[in-house]
Design a protein around this nucleic acid. Structure first.
Length: 429
RNA sequence: GGAGAGGUGUCUGAGUGGUCGAAAGAGCACGCCUGGAAAGUGUGUAUACGCCAAAAGUGUAUCGAGGGUUCGAAUCCCUCCCUCUCCGCCA
């Protein structure tokens, strides 16, 4: 297993110490002292390498000389130089070990540093401090007899949660009849829309290796959130982001290959350890769910523009489904470890009377590309880290939840027009 | 699961101890040739980390990973990982 090194960002930290500290504070980062520790270790690293390089250069030159002398038969002179070799060897070994352990320590600290938030990220710690960017659509007023989606699911025989418990456990629903068809319709609809927006579809492995987990930042940070297949040392993907983005691990793209735009449908598996209670009923929080993901690899100059485009795309889906939604700009404390700026899209669940997160669109800037070693050749012909972005477009369960709840009528549940060509039925009765 | 083969640069592929960061070809880039293209032809074409204000330059490391032998390792030895082929099983 090759070690994933993320040294690429060290020089940035060294040269922008104040800015790094300033940004980390917005993310409410608890160990700012790590920054100075990293800078100090990097200093030691460079010193040590300098010494090591010097000794190695001497030893290399001597070895070359010995070769020359041996060829011309001057054995005595060769032996004289050989006498020095032990000292070099010891020094090289010693300095090499030292360098390795410094690098390892540096590496361990570096992975503890979250990505720096963008300047537009609001300060804040709790979800309540997220900034509402916009709200769109009309929240339906339902009669008092309106049912939450889990009751609708059972009334119309769409989803069987108990059967899922029997065959697997809680959080693994069984979709039946029109419930199953609705899943398939949504997946096809989302993929078609993504394709129209220029994303090319990929179908992917649902299990990934350790290197992939590190590449997108799930490891080591969120190890406990992934299902792990110990026998083969593989992880079930928590999102298609992982296999899609890792397609570009260890890749140097040509400038004209950017932007890379991919979409993919996969089931997603999340252990969701520790989240139980009133808010996880029905489809609100699952261990397995379906999602269409969009991913872009772009030139850093355009990444924020692209983030807006992706946000617009996700919103267009919600508009077409006629679901009331709002867009949040996450505050520093609520953002994920690797993100520089995240928009969350939430739909209004009219029976539960609360907002449900259905998408999260993020710009990771170079956080992932550093780990992935994902670069492109810029106009000057030099390699440069690309920016990566991804977003859900969309995750199904909460869409289904709001769709069932908001569209319930006395006759049954009305399917949004855009979906009818996919479901081939207009009503769930 | 059993047996065998193998992992070299963007790719194919040579290389069994020094002159090897690595032949040759393909691809790609730029130039010449051409009315234009093809063909032909010339040149260039890995990455990271140091040193240097920077460019130029230069040092070090990297031939799956790690360790060992040696003055010197792509090449020899050990361990691990991965891929392929055949057999078995199988959607």
């Amino acid at each position: 297993m090759s070690k994933i090194k993320i040294m690429l960002q060290v020089s940035y930290i060294r040269e922008n110490r104040e800015h790094v500290l300033d940004r980390l504070a917005v993310k409410n980062f608890k160990q700012p002292e790590l920054v100075d520790e990293v800078i100090k270790l990097d200093e030691q690293r460079r010193q040590t390498q300098n010494m090591l390089d010097g000794v190695s250069a001497e030893a290399n030159a001597a070895a070359k000389q010995i070769g020359e002398l041996m060829r011309t038969g001057k054995r005595t002179e060769a032996d004289a130089i050989k006498a020095n070799s032990n000292t070099w060897k010891e020094d090289i070994k010693k300095l090499g070990d030292q360098l390795a352990s410094i690098e390892q320590e540096l590496q361990q600290k570096l992975v503890l540093l979250p990505n720096l938030p963008h300047t537009s990220v609001p300060k804040g710690i709790t979800p309540e401090e997220n900034e509402v960017v916009l709200e769109n659509g009309i929240r339906p007023e339902l009669p008092a007899t309106a049912l939450p989606h889990w009751e609708l699911a059972s009334k119309y025989n769409l989803i069987d949660f108990e059967l899922g418990v029997k065959i697997t456990g809680a959080g693994f629903p069984v979709y039946k009849g029109k419930g199953a068809k609705l899943q398939r319709a949504l997946i096809a609809f989302f993929l078609d829309e993504a394709e129209k927006a220029g994303y090319s579809e990929v179908m992917l492995p649902l299990l990934v290796n350790e290197a992939s987990g590190f590449g997108t930042g799930q490891l080591p940070d969120k190890e406990g959130q992934m299902y792990y297949v110990g026998l083969d040392n593989l992880y079930l993907i928590p999102t298609a982001e992982v296999p899609i983005t890792n397609l570009y691990r260890d890749v140097i793209l040509k400038a004209d290959e950017l932007p890379v735009k991919n979409c993919g449908y996969t089931p997603c598996f999340r252990r969701e350890a520790g989240s139980y209670g009133a808010h996880v009923r029905g489809l609100n929080r699952l261990h397995q769910f379906d999602k269409v993901e969009i991913v872009q690899v772009v030139n850093p100059e355009t990444s924020y523009e692209v983030l807006e485009q992706m946000s617009t795309h996700v919103q267009s889906l919600l508009q077409k489904l006629q679901l009331p939604y709002r867009v949040l700009r996450l505050c520093g404390g609520d953002m994920s470890f690797g993100s520089a700026l995240t928009y969350d899209m939430e739909t209004w669940s009219a029976a539960q009377k609360r907002w449900l997160e259905v998408s999260s669109v993020s710009n990771f800037e170079t956080f992932q590309s550093t780990r992935l070693k994902l670069r492109f050749r810029n106009a000057e012909g030099k390699t440069q880290l690309a920016h990566t972005l991804n977003g859900s477009a969309l995750a199904l369960p909460r869409i289904v939840a709001t769709l069932l709840e908001n569209n319930q009528t006395e006759r049954g549940i009305k399917i949004p027009e855009v979906l009818v060509p996919y479901t081939k039925f207009e009503w769930i009765e």
